[in-house]
């Protein structure tokens, strides 16, 4: 019955605490006025960390079949493919043929 793992109460509560603390940190970092683009990098790093906590402990991926984690990772991978290749266009529209 490995799929039916009950997540310990302590884990759930400490995950919640960590998420709230990280939210406070995210806001604190905002008021520190870190120069761009590092403000976005820090904010996204914190958000990703929070999302990972939710996925591992609230959604139980830590205890679950590993293939479910693979599915989640692939979804982010394909999102990055989408945005990454689109940016190759939108960020470089201004370039002329001379750069080649």
């Amino acid at each position: 019955m490995s799929a039916h793992h009950a997540i310990p109460l302590k884990t759930l509560l400490s995950t919640t605490l960590a998420l709230v603390v990280l939210t406070v940190v995210t806001i604190a970092v905002f008021y520190l006025n870190i120069p761009a683009p590092f403000d976005v990098v820090v904010a996204l790093f914190l958000a990703t960390f929070k999302a990972t906590l939710v996925a591992m402990f609230f959604m139980g991926l830590y205890y679950d079949e590993k293939f479910n984690t693979v599915v989640l990772i692939f979804s982010f991978l394909f999102f990055f493919v989408f945005i990454g290749i689109t940016l190759l266009d939108t960020l470089f529209r201004e370039s002329s043929i001379s750069i080649w």
Partner: peptide
């Protein structure tokens, strides 16, 4: 379509 030359080459 007017996308950048860079992405055209990559695609």
């Amino acid at each position: 379509s007017g996308q950048s030359e860079l992405s055209t080459v990559v695609f």
